[in-house]
Design a protein around this nucleic acid. Structure first.
Lengths: 199, 199
DNA sequence: GATTGATCTGAACGTATGTTCAGTTAATAT
DNA sequence: ATATTAACTGAACATACGTTCAGATCAATC
C-alpha cells in the first residue's frame, strides 16, 4: 500500500464539503456547479467524485449531518425540570447552535426542495423530532401553570420562527454579544409565553 | 392595425408571470428553465421574449411588484394613533398580506441573491422602508410607555420574523381560521412587547 | 378577400452542465 | 531502486441551458 498517512484525501474531503456549503448558501444548490466547487478547493471537477457519488449526496450529507448534530447535541444537554428554567435553557441552546451555523441553517431551510423524495423524508423526520422537543416543553409549562398560551402547537411553531430569526441578522462582531442576545430572547420568549413578571 | 382587442398578449403576459412565480417558488429561480415556464403556459420558449427581455427581468418584476404592492397597501391603511391599537392593526395587516401571497413571500426571501447588483439594491431599499414602519411603531409605543422592550431595533426585527413565520405553515383550509390566527398573534405580540394585561 | 401586424413556432446558436474514465503523478512500502 | 496504489488531471460524453430570429399563423381592419 502507498499513501496511508500524509494522504491528501483527509484534507480534500472536508474541504470539498466546506466549499459546497459556502457556495450552496451563497448562490443556491441549483446555481452552483461542480466545477465551481472544485475550483474553490483547487482541484479538477472529476476529483470530487472520489469523495461523493454525486451532487445530490453532497447536499444531503450537509443537511443530514446538520440535523444529526442538532439532535445529538440536545440529547446530551442537562435540561432543568422546572418549565421556566427549561425554556431558558432551550432558548440559549437553540440560539447558540443556530447562530454558529448560519449557512447550514439557511440551506436547511431553503434547499429542502432540491432533495430527492427519499432524502427529503429523512430530513423532515429529523426536523419533526426537534419540533416535538419544544412542543413538549411548552405543554409541560402549560400543565404546571407556568405558561399561558392559547394554542401550544401554534406557539411552538411561532417560537421556532422567533428563535431562528436572529440567524439572518446577528453578527458575532456586531454591537450585540451573543450573551446579550440570549438574555433578550429569554425575556422575549418568557413574555410571549405569558410567564408572570417575577421568577 | 390588426389584433387590437381579442389579442392573446393580454392573457399570455400575466400567465407567464404566474407560471414563473409558481415554478420559482417550487423549484428555485436557478432550477427553473424558460422551457418549463413556456410549457406551463402552453407556448414555445421563444414566445416568452415577447413579454420580458430576459429571465432576470421575470424575477425582478415579481419581487419589485410584490414590494410595491406591500408599501402601497400599507400607505392607504388608516392606522390608529394609540400605539397598542396601531400594533394590532399592523399585525393584522402584515399577517393578512403575507398569508395571501406565500409564493411571493418565499421567493422574496430566498431569491434575492439571484438578482443583479442593481436590482438587488432596489428591492433591499423597499424592504428597508417597510422595516422602518414597524420600528417607528415600536418606538412610539416605548415613548408612550405602552410597550416595554430592551432594544426596539432588535425587537422590530424579531417581530417581523415572528409575524412572517405563519407563511410557512398556515393553510386557509387548516384547523385555524385567519381571524383566529390574527387574534392569537395580536395576543402573542402584545405579550412579547410587554403590554400590560388589561387594555 | 386582400392586407396588416401582433403573436407565436421551430430550429438553431454558442455555451455550460453533471458525470465518466483512461491515464498521469507522487508518496509509501518493499 | 522498484512496485504499488491513492489521488488527481484533462479531455470527452450526452444533454441542457438562455437567447435569437426567420418565417408561419391568423384575427382584425380596410
Amino acid at each position: 500500500m502507498a499513501r496511508k498517512s500524509g494522504s491528501h484525501s483527509e484534507i480534500t474531503g472536508p474541504r470539498i464539503k466546506q466549499a459546497a456549503l459556502e457556495l450552496f448558501a451563497r448562490h443556491g444548490f441549483a446555481a452552483v456547479t461542480m466545477r465551481q466547487i472544485a475550483a474553490t478547493v483547487g482541484v479538477q471537477a472529476g476529483a470530487i467524485y472520489n469523495y461523493t457519488p454525486d451532487k445530490q449526496a453532497l447536499l444531503f450529507d450537509l443537511l443530514d449531518g446538520h440535523m444529526l448534530d442538532l439532535l445529538r447535541k440536545w440529547s446530551v444537554e442537562l435540561v432543568p425540570i422546572d418549565p421556566i428554567a427549561a425554556l431558558d435553557h432551550f432558548v440559549a441552546f437553540h440560539l447558540d447552535f443556530h447562530i454558529k451555523r448560519p449557512e447550514l441553517v439557511f440551506i436547511s431551510y431553503m434547499e429542502l426542495r432540491n432533495l430527492t423524495e427519499i432524502n427529503f423524508k429523512v430530513i423532515v423526520e429529523k426536523r419533526r423530532i426537534y419540533e416535538k422537543i419544544i412542543h413538549n416543553l411548552i405543554l409541560s409549562g402549560v400543565t404546571s401553570g407556568d405558561f399561558s398560551v392559547p394554542d401550544p402547537k401554534i406557539t411552538s411553531l411561532a417560537l421556532i420562527a422567533l428563535l431562528t430569526g436572529p440567524v439572518d441578522w446577528f453578527r458575532e462582531d456586531g454591537r450585540l454579544t451573543s450573551d446579550e442576545l440570549t438574555r433578550q430572547y429569554c425575556a422575549l420568549t418568557r413574555q410571549a409565553l405569558g410567564v408572570s413578571a417575577q421568577a
